[in-house]
Nucleic acid binder design. Structure first.
Length: 568
RNA sequence: GCACCCGUAGCUCAGCCCGGAUAGAGCACCAGCCUUCUAAGUUGGGGGUCCAAGGUUCAAAUCCUUGCGGGUGCGCCA
């Protein structure tokens, strides 16, 4: 806000401090009654050798009021400053549907790698965080004038594929596959893991899967794929298709889209080439005994980047994928949204890119997020102990349907149910673990998605009743506390969006949305909008205020991927 | 062992980056508010050694150090 600078300028003389210094000292009081800005006088107390209370008093009586300042009050050691309400009100009156949008991104490209599930396995509740956070970042960057590219980089190769091929050949039920490909694939995977586990000898903890008949079978299949075996490739393709169907259903429900859907396997060859080149140049080292290629770092543990049998591993592919994206998109930033267990992997990846002589490594970011815990249930796809994301969504949608019926209201059960799940996930600070439970998911009261949507619907209901909003609106003589609080919250929006982008943290927008809705509901209960006692002019103004609120809440929820409705 | 993250009300979380006014919400609990724009709402109440101990400061949940508790990583897995 420019007000801050202006206030600092005006305070410079009477306080004898520099403008810049005052700007850092100025703070925003906890409640609107205390003013719009506050200047704590402790620092001056040290300099002037007087009590801060006294200094505040003196300053309050000595400073001449000049726009934008309309009032100055001393309160204890604080100098509380009030800004001419006209300035706030005018800003609110000017709010239109693009409020908060900006084009300072200047169409610069941002690559966001998110969701990225493993094919063959179903998406469980743990996968949702990458998907939701990534999707929100896409929206935020686009809103600020960047050009984001969302990439779904699927785990389409690895030992789990080998396992599935073995299981597919032995136990596939084609009818079940048609009916529900996700469940059938899960059944196959679980059955394989049971067989595998039955071979494990007790007490051989670390090597439990070495020389395991079943694990070896899976490894063989994996090798067949690498060698281009036709039959293995055909099954691989089938698995890809079947699990793709399941993913598509989930993405459709979540209303998440990507610019590019690709897989790790596509980057194996290019990755090997890059690594071999680096080895030739001596940047990467070769293990003399085995022939495996690795990289050493100053502060990180060494990393193998090519197996001794010459096959690519995860990081081999990641290197090639990063290089290709840089070439293709010339990005300003590339963001990986994965859980924090991969933190070191990405540190190593970025270092390797730098060591290999590419100049984009400092444009790479990793957004690490914590795990999603589901009550006491342990999520392990091996054992089939899994809470399917699709089931969670279906269940919340079902609950929404019941609620609508119970209340005899309208509303879109899909938007409510899906919004509820998204909100639980995104309202948390990414790096913290999320506690997810049925109780929480199915609760639609308090700090929840439906509460936000409900606030929007209430506001919409007023607007729809009023039919039209006047163009010319007089600035009211007085504002009550609830109106002021709502106005100030509304005006915070652009700042919050930018902060969320800067910190790669959509939860800031989620928390803001909640506070904004609280401010509205407080206003709603104490201020009548249509036919208020205060008269027609108040009605006209409040209608516009309500309209501004719903515009901003809609935009704010849009950035989280949560949809609103006019009635619920 | 080394590294990273977390620790705030019974539970789930904001606040910490950038130190300031009585530490805030939601859930749960108790007591109110629907003949007035949607009660998925709202008003009030109880409930806190901000993990602990030191340090810096006029001022610490916030910054620094150490310790404790919990999670995670340190594979030729992905």
């Amino acid at each position: 806000m420019q007000h801050k600078e202006e206030i600092a300028k005006q305070l410079a003389k009477p306080t004898g401090l520099k403008k810049e210094e005052i700007e850092t000292i100025l703070e925003i009081p906890k409640s609107v009654e205390l003013g719009d800005y506050a200047f704590p006088c402790f620092k001056l107390a040290g300099i002037m050798k007087k009590s801060p209370v006294e200094i505040a008093k003196n300053l309050a009586s000595n400073i001449k009021l000049k726009s934008p300042i309309s009032q100055i009050k001393a309160q204890g050691p604080y100098l509380n400053i009030f800004i001419d309400k006209k300035i706030f009100v005018e800003e609110v009156l000017n709010i239109n549907k693009d409020y908060g949008r900006d084009n300072f991104g200047n169409k610069k490209k941002i690559v966001i790698d998110f969701s990225s599930p493993n094919i063959g396995k179903p998406m469980h509740i743990g996968h949702i965080r990458s998907t939701i956070i990534g999707d929100s970042l896409m929206r935020i960057y686009s809103y600020l004038g960047y050009e984001p590219f969302g990439i779904n980089y699927m785990g389409d190769i690895g030992l789990h594929i080998g396992k599935l091929i073995v299981a597919w050949e032995l136990w596939l039920n084609k009818d079940e596959l048609k009916k529900d490909p996700v469940k059938e694939l899960l059944r196959l995977y679980v059955k394989f893991c049971e067989k595998e586990k039955s071979q494990v000898q007790e007490g051989t903890d670390e090597q439990e899967f070495e020389n395991n008949e079943w694990t070896n079978k899976a490894k063989e299949k994996l090798k067949l794929i690498e060698m281009g075996d036709e039959k293995a490739h055909k099954i691989w393709e089938e698995i890809r298709k079947a699990s793709g169907k399941g993913f598509d259903r989930v993405y459709k429900m979540l209303n998440v889209e990507f610019n590019e859907v690709t897989g790790q396997s596509k980057f194996s060859e290019a990755g090997k080439e890059i690594v071999m080149n680096a080895a030739k140049k001596g940047i990467a080292k070769t293990d003399r005994e085995t022939g495996a290629i690795y990289i050493e770092f100053d502060k990180l543990p060494k990393k193998f980047i090519l197996r001794s049998n010459g096959t690519a591993s995860y990081i081999t592919q990641d290197i090639a994928a990063a290089v290709e994206r840089n070439k293709k998109y010339k990005f300003e930033k590339m963001i990986y949204v994965t859980d924090y267990r991969q933190m070191m992997h990405f540190q190593q990846l970025f270092e390797i890119i730098k060591k290999f002589g590419y100049d984009f490594s400092d444009k790479c970011y990793h957004v690490p997020f914590g795990t999603v815990n589901f009550g006491n249930e342990i999520i392990a796809s091996r054992a089939g102990k899994i809470v399917l994301l699709e089931d969670v969504l279906k269940k919340t949608v079902e609950k929404a349907k019941e609620e609508i019926k119970k209340r005899e209201t309208k509303g879109d059960e899909e938007k409510i149910g899906v919004g509820a799940v998204k909100y639980i996930i995104i309202k948390n600070e990414p790096q913290k673990d999320v506690e997810f439970s049925w109780d929480q998911a199915l609760s639609f009261e308090g700090n929840t998605g439906p509460y936000l949507q409900y606030s929007y619907a209430r506001a919409s209901s007023i607007i729809n009743k009023a039919k039209k909003i006047a163009r010319k609106i007089k600035i009211p003589k007085n504002l009550n506390e609830k109106e002021k609080e709502l106005i100030k919250k509304i005006l915070d929006f652009p700042k919050i969006v930018k902060e969320a982008a800067e910190k790669l943290n959509p939860s800031l927008i989620a928390n803001y949305s909640f506070e904004l809705s609280q401010a509205f509901n407080g206003f709603y209960t104490s201020c009548k909008v249509i036919n208020p006692e205060e008269g027609k002019e108040t009605e006209v103004f409040r209608l516009k205020l309500v309209d501004a609120f719903r515009t901003v809440l809609k935009n704010s929820l849009y950035l989280l991927g949560i949809e609103v409705m006019e009635e619920m």
